[in-house]
């Protein structure tokens, strides 16, 4: 049975670092959507979504992140993705969204850039 998505959350300087863990597909993306909405609506200066422990993502996960990016831009929140594994990075490339998001290697890089 697939496991629910788990989240770790850290606050580093003025950035919130959200670390989902697991596989993000049509079954799990509603959990990610809800959590991202909560985090964006709290209006941190920067929201880092660290995907280092996300082992799989389909287009529903991508759609959820696009929705969060749109919401973040509207709220003047800087949304940064980090830690993409090759399998996850490839879907960003296929969908040509790797240039739309700010993507950095690690969450530390994202925080250091604040």
């Amino acid at each position: 049975m697939p496991q629910p998505l788990e989240f770790r959350r850290d606050v580093v300087k003025d950035a919130v670092v959200l670390r989902p863990e697991g596989e993000i597909d049509l079954a799990r993306s509603p959990e990610l959507r809800l959590r991202l909405r909560q985090e964006v609506d709290a209006k941190p200066r920067r929201l880092v979504v660290d995907l280092a422990k996300v082992t799989y993502m389909d287009s529903s996960g991508i759609a959820t992140l696009v929705e969060a990016l749109t919401r973040a831009r509207a709220g003047n929140v800087s949304l940064v993705l980090s830690g993409l594994q090759p399998r996850v990075r490839s879907i960003f490339s296929i969908s040509r969204l790797d240039t739309v998001f700010t993507i950095v290697a690690t969450a530390d890089d994202a925080v250091a850039a604040t």
Binding site: S59, A63, V66, T70, I94, S95
Partner: peptide, 16 residues
């Protein structure tokens, strides 16, 4: 794919 909006990527992935 020039549109940045949620949804509609599945078919592109299948056909790719």
């Amino acid at each position: 794919l020039c549109e940045v909006r949620p949804g509609g990527l599945g078919l592109h992935i299948i056909r790719s």
